[in-house]
Design a protein around this nucleic acid. Structure first.
Length: 229
DNA sequence: ATCCAGATCG
DNA sequence: CGATCGGGAT
């Protein structure tokens, strides 16, 4: 866990050079007030699930003009689950979406932007109170929907850090997150958001293509020269 | 057959 | 801790 600022900066630069910008988070109309809500719904639907399948579910909701907190909050569970079925875990995720929209309606009258403004650690705690929103989903919502500076830790990120001996395998989510916050949070807010946004997506690209659970392609990996620490 | 932009429950 | 949720793309 030493030397981590240099490590993490180098890793980002090498991944960006190799993969290029990843354009997360895809949304049809970024200027719409509902864009943050669409991103949040996507963050819940994509839990342990292919993004491709999530897109189909989002398309279903959008086609029916149901992609608002009010609509989803008032939909029957039967209707909602039939629409999001392509994203898998549809019974579980139906409840999770409704838990989230209920939270938005009760506390913010459905105003997603307002729900993500203000003290970031307070907002993070609020999101974590919603059953079905864990640390990774909460941070994805804050970062991608709210443009707030919080780093998203996922299985890919952990695997890269552990294999490069930047972190041990027994840390808690927030401890992995601190590695990034402690070393990269010193810049201006919008720069940090852009960095965190891109960095997380690059870890995913690396974890899928090279740093795989089995049969990792270390010989071809864009980070192979970071192994010499 | 395998695996996915995880979280909760027992 | 392990078990469970799940359709769809490859």
């Amino acid at each position: 866990m030493l030397n981590s600022k240099k490590d993490l900066t180098d890793i980002f630069n090498q991944l960006l050079k190799h993969f290029g910008p990843q354009h997360w988070w895809p949304v049809n109309d970024p200027a719409s007030d509902l864009a943050p809500f669409e991103i949040s719904v996507g963050a819940i639907l994509t839990q342990n699930t292919n993004w491709k399948n999530v897109e189909t579910a989002l398309k279903n909701l959008k086609y029916e003009n149901l992609l608002t907190p009010e609509k989803i909050d008032s939909l029957s569970e039967e209707t909602l689950s039939s629409l999001i079925r392509p994203s898998g875990y549809f019974r579980v995720k139906t409840k999770r979406l409704k838990n989230y929209t209920k939270y938005l309606m009760k506390n913010y009258h459905g105003d997603v932007k307002a729900s993500l403004a203000g003290d970031i650690s307070e907002k993070r705690k609020e999101l974590l109170q919603v059953n079905g929103i864990g640390p990774e989903t909460a941070d994805s919502i804050l970062l991608y929907a709210g443009r707030r500076p919080t780093f998203v830790i996922d299985a890919y990120t952990k695997r890269v850090l552990i294999r490069h001996k930047i972190a041990s395998d027994n840390l808690k989510y927030e401890e992995y997150q601190l590695l990034f916050h402690d070393t990269l949070l010193a810049n201006g807010n919008s720069e940090v958001v852009k960095l965190f946004n891109e960095y997380h997506a690059l870890f995913v690209a690396c974890g899928k293509n090279y740093c795989r659970p089995k049969n990792p392609r270390c010989d071809q990996c864009p980070l192979k020269y970071n192994n010499t620490i």
